[in-house]
């Protein structure tokens, strides 16, 4: 069961925790503080193939490493959407084509694509939660008939915080999925919905008992969203969330990412809400 949730934890490197040299191919500015960086190996060695929802450690030479989700992998090019949140991510968002960086991974268990086959799929993303969900979405679109209805709800703080603007337009035009975009607050120039993501869920159409939901965003958003989905009748075990914790090693050895019994890096980052629900109610766990 869930055979596709296994990753290749060691990565391609035989040196413990050592990154492989990669190079920036292109950079797309998504928002004032967020950029999508496309990277390719700077040599003959590359990390193994990634699965939707897995992450890597991106290394800014001389500065350090951060766990960053994979937002796409196409023809050997890895895409990462990074928000400038501090020293390392600042350096990563400042990269320009040709620049050097390091990559190790891929790590963790991603979205349970196998469990979603034949089911309605509800994807709920909050803010930078969309990038780690994009590979799952693309995989579904590549094999669209293998899944039931596809509902996407994407919320951001304001319209200018929305990432993948062009792709959103494209998804919006498709007849084989429904996309709802909402923002927490907007000016008069925004004609879309306003309200936190959970306000859009009642409008999502799916058969709760035959639904698998993938949720990624800030923890509080995932908690409210999962509660709302369960309230609609989706089994808690069918709601999957991608957890975030401080990570140093990404291979279950440094202890930093513990969330109760789970090592988020190794057992997650995607975990079932059914398993997590009691823990999400405990403060400062």
């Amino acid at each position: 069961m869930l055979g596709d949730r296994t990753g290749s934890p060691g990565g391609a490197s035989d040196v413990p925790l050592a990154p492989l040299p990669y190079q920036v191919r292109s950079v797309v500015r998504e928002t004032p503080d967020t950029a999508t960086v496309a990277v390719v190996p700077r040599g003959s060695r590359r990390i193994g193939p990634t699965r939707p929802g897995q992450f890597v450690m991106l290394y800014a030479f001389g500065i350090g490493e951060s766990p960053i989700g994979v937002s796409d992998e196409t023809d050997g090019v890895l895409y990462h959407t990074v928000r400038d949140a501090g020293r390392i991510t600042h350096a990563l968002t400042r990269l320009t084509p040709g620049d050097l960086l390091g990559v190790r991974g891929p790590y963790g268990h991603g979205w349970p694509m196998e469990a979603a086959r034949g089911k309605d799929v509800v994807i709920v993303a909050g803010g930078l939660g969309l990038p780690p969900l994009r590979p799952a979405l693309r995989e579904i679109l590549r094999d669209r008939d293998a899944y039931g209805r596809l509902e996407i709800v994407y919320g951001a703080r304001t319209p200018k915080d929305l990432v993948y603007y062009a792709e959103l337009q494209e998804w919006r035009r498709r007849a084989d999925l429904r996309l709802q975009v909402t923002v927490d607050a907007a000016g008069r120039d925004w004609y879309g919905d306003v309200g936190v993501v959970t306000t859009r869920l009642p409008d999502a159409r799916f058969d709760p008992e035959r639904t698998v939901a993938f949720v990624c965003g800030p923890e509080i958003m995932m908690k409210f969203t999962a509660q709302a989905l369960v309230g609609r009748g989706v089994p808690a075990e069918s709601v999957w969330v991608s957890m975030e914790r401080n990570m140093k090693c990404a291979i279950g050895l440094c202890g930093h990412c513990q969330f109760g019994p789970s090592f988020v890096c190794r057992d997650g980052p995607v975990l079932s809400y059914g398993e997590l629900a009691p823990r999400l109610g405990v403060r400062e766990l």
Binding site: S13, L17, P21, F61
Partner: peptide, 16 residues
């Protein structure tokens, strides 16, 4: 110390 890395010819090498 786990490893040492050195920039070289537009890349870097890691020595465990």
């Amino acid at each position: 110390r786990l490893w040492t890395a050195e920039r070289k010819e537009g890349s870097f090498t890691v020595t465990p």
